[in-house]
C-alpha cells in the first residue's frame, strides 16, 4: 500500500481544459540519435556553485552594511 501511494496519487490543480505545457507529438517514425549522457549533464548543470567567494557586488554591499554600525554593538 505504502509503495502504491507514492506513484503520483495527488490531484494537483490544473485549469480545466487547459494545459499550457502539452508535449508536442513526435512523428510516428521520427528517429534521432541519443546524446552522450554524462557529458551533457556537466555542460548543463552546476552543483559546485556554493563557494566561499565574497567578492561579488552583493557580498561587498552586505559587508559594508554589516560594518556600517557594528561599532555600536
Amino acid at each position: 500500500m505504502e509503495k502504491d501511494a507514492k506513484v503520483a496519487t495527488e490531484d494537483p490543480k490544473v485549469d480545466l481544459f487547459e494545459d499550457d505545457d502539452e508535449f508536442e507529438e513526435f512523428e510516428i517514425n521520427e528517429e534521432w540519435e541519443d546524446k552522450e549522457e554524462g557529458k551533457d549533464t556537466t555542460q548543463q548543470w552546476e552543483d559546485d556553485w556554493d563557494d566561499d567567494d565574497v567578492n561579488d557586488d552583493f557580498s561587498l554591499h552586505l559587508k559594508k552594511e554589516l560594518e556600517s554600525n557594528t561599532e555600536k554593538s
Binding site: A8, D11, P12, F17
Partner: peptide, 10 residues
C-alpha cells in the same frame, strides 16, 4: 492533464 483529472493516470 487537459481535463485536470491527473489522478486517473495512476
Amino acid at each position: 492533464f487537459k481535463l485536470g483529472t491527473v489522478h486517473l493516470c495512476r
